[in-house]
Design a protein around this nucleic acid. Structure first.
Lengths: 246, 246
DNA sequence: TAAGTAAGTTGGACTGTACAACTAACTATG
DNA sequence: CATAGTTAGTTGTACAGTCCAACTTACTTA
């Protein structure tokens, strides 16, 4: 089943209605990969080839590329492959973000991309040589990106912030062991506003999503309890948001 | 720009890297169109052609079809076109649901569909002759659908229910004028559980999403105030969910 | 030993839902 | 014409969870 139909064969042997003879849009998958590092949210970007035949030569872009109908069983597998190729990470939080398709987003013709978004811990995996972490300042990236990747990234940031208000998603950005203040800091970085300590603790602890390990993080002050994510790692949905800023 | 590249031309004149010579997946758009009618949630289905050359002949399916790179500027326009062709409705609530793509979902080859979901009032538009409203009983449809449309529909129902917990989406299912008990009934139909009257009223009225019209709905009992949606019809997000069932 | 700092707790004010009983406005019926 | 029935809409108490702020705890460093 893989490998055909080749585009040149179209319309010869398939479909009496002739519908398959329609020109087909280009189909790609892009992945917005987030991590937290150095007190800011970071996104993984790759630089496009310098070759003049390529669109947006040398511009920064989201990792992604064409669906390989021979290799990729489905879209999620394709996204997981892109993620693995760039970071070495194999089992992160990966969800579909949406799709962007239009006549004009790619100079090569009508194209549609399926965008995914992934959360990985700072220390996970090893970066590909053409990939770089770029910090997100004030909810935006400084540079312009190739294609409509700026729009896709903006949507991803909005989705992440939105979900962080009422889910346990930031847990997937944490290393294997972390403290409650660590976790709160990550929430605050993503939301870009301070949260109430006592309400935060109550909420997280009553959500039954993390468990204490028999260790403390020691430092120059009172030691903090270490926790880890519980198995069966479905994200938790809270019934209230944190009190939103006016 | 429209009309090319034809699939047969591929690889002749585009891209030195040869990447464009990859076989391209089929690209379609499908729309899950919901309404409320007769005390139940309904979804619009169309029957596939009887022609044996077609996949799933005569099976029921979501309205949709191939992206027409000549007609459709982008995916949302394509979805709006499908919606218009089947219902005559032009400005409903329309949001992207996600995309489904795999080697096996369409017997004709690797294919990806971009799914949208729409909410329209019961009385809006006029149905195409091959389209039918089908009730959703207990969160499911009785019949099996063509392709993976059963999965897509299940996702749409889940998304709708999820959002109804904390947004004003059901407002888009209402006719031009409606009462608060009408609206509450629609919430209850979608959620399939009763809601608290006083909390419901407080929430909706303080959300500043509807305005009273100078009319009452009269019936065999106490008349009810009629309301309409306010202009600037962005959906409202509530900071709490309704109290979820256990 | 005292000062400094971050972890973690406690308590009162406030917001909005849950639950239940209530009042209001109409029709239908004897 | 009074009364029962029905649905619209309000009110009041209990409760859950956040907000805000002050507090205690446990450690390091000077």
């Amino acid at each position: 089943m893989a490998g055909e139909p080749r585009s040149k064969d179209l319309g010869k042997d398939l479909g009496k209605s002739g519908q398959l003879d329609f020109p087909r849009p280009l189909t790609t998958v892009d992945v917005v990969i987030f991590t937290i590092s150095g007190d800011s949210l970071q996104v993984l970007l790759v630089q496009r080839p310098a070759d003049e035949g390529e669109p947006f030569p040398q511009a920064w872009a989201l990792p992604g590329g064409f669906v390989d109908v021979a290799k990729d069983r489905d879209l999620a597998a394709c996204a997981a492959r892109k993620l693995r190729e760039k970071t070495g990470v194999t089992s992160p939080y990966l969800e579909q973000l949406g799709s962007w398709g239009s006549a004009t987003r790619d100079p090569r013709g009508w194209s549609a991309t399926h965008a995914y978004f992934a959360l990985i811990p700072d220390d996970a995996g090893t970066l590909a040589s053409d990939a770089r972490w770029c910090p997100i300042q004030g909810g935006r990236l400084k540079d312009k990106l190739a294609f409509d990747h700026g729009d896709i990234l903006a949507t991803a940031i909005q989705r992440l912030r939105n979900k962080v208000e009422y889910t346990s998603l930031p847990a997937y950005l944490m290393p294997a062991e972390f403290t409650l203040p660590d976790l709160q800091r990550v929430y605050e970085i993503v939301l870009d506003r301070p949260l109430e300590k006592s309400a935060f603790r109550t909420r997280i602890l009553s959500a039954d999503m993390i468990e204490a390990v028999a260790k403390m993080r020691r430092g120059p002050n009172r030691p903090a309890q270490l926790y880890r994510l519980k198995k069966g790692r479905e994200p938790v949905y809270f019934v209230r948001t944190f009190n939103p800023p006016e």
